[in-house]
Design a protein around this nucleic acid. Structure first.
Lengths: 142, 142
DNA sequence: AATTTACTTTACGTTTACGTAAACTTTATC
DNA sequence: GATAAAGTTTACGTAAACGTAAAGTAAATT
């Protein structure tokens, strides 16, 4: 079972549930660099990985520009001298800190969700109790 | 040391490092509801909490509209009937799933950062080795 | 009293991330 | 060979989240 190595625009769009418009836009912004057969775009597996990263970035609140910056930097790094490599290391550390912040945010949010849920359930049983009580008084009157 | 209960717009802006413009915009969009003394906005601690939540939401990739929806829903829930409460519970579950997704995203990102860092370090020692080698050959020639 | 400082409203401008329509070409299918 | 299906470019439109400028008010300071 060989790995598929090229993709059409609609294949990628379908797989990641985005519009072809979006994919073209990402190319326009320099985030994807498909080759061409005639006019038609041909995406390879590197493009596919990048698309995945773009979307994950979005979910994490990154702008396309930020994601592009990362891509570019990484490309530079690969061909890079010592300075580039060191720069990349500091950037990676920054990203790490960002991720820590996000983990804290998520943990907080989870706690708040639990609190909210507890309150909801309490309010529900409260309502339930009142209903029960009303029913018994009604029965008493009968 | 009593808790501070009211805040000016600039106090809040400074504390959370946003512009007053943003704070006014959030009010405009119905996310904050400060009272007034004359024309001047007076924010209470509930507003302060909400501002904090707004910003955390942003870091987590939520739009203002989404955050507002949550605020509104929670307000309704507090005064709410059974239907509202049940609706809130399902929404809380959805949020939980979103958070799970984000945790996965973060975990992935962390792994990729580690990989990237490793490659960087390898490339660096590689460069270092070449430099050392060159120096020794130079010394040999002397 | 004059000025500075902090606020206010109104309103137009800007960037990001696409949507949508129009008009055209290439490729696949009957 | 006609027609549909998928792809293309060009270009204008839009919603979100503010920035920024203008012009005025209120409160504090000198």
């Amino acid at each position: 079972m060989a790995e598929k190595t090229t993709y059409s625009i609609s294949e990628l769009a379908k797989e990641f549930d985005v519009t072809t418009r979006s994919v073209r836009f990402y190319e326009d912004q320099g985030l994807l660099k498909p080759s061409r057969r005639g006019q038609t775009r041909i995406f390879n597996s590197k493009d596919r990985v990048r698309l995945k990263l773009i979307l994950r970035g979005k979910r994490m609140g990154f702008s396309l520009a930020e994601t592009k910056e990362l891509f570019d930097l990484w490309d530079e790094t690969l061909t890079g001298n010592e300075k580039q490599l060191l720069k990349m290391l500091t950037i990676l550390n920054n990203k790490r800190e960002q991720l820590e912040q996000q983990k804290n945010d998520i943990a907080q949010a989870e706690m708040e969700i639990e609190t909210a849920e507890t309150r909801c359930r309490e309010a529900l049983t409260e309502l339930q109790n009142r209903k029960d009580k009303q029913e018994t008084t009604e029965r008493a009157r009968a």
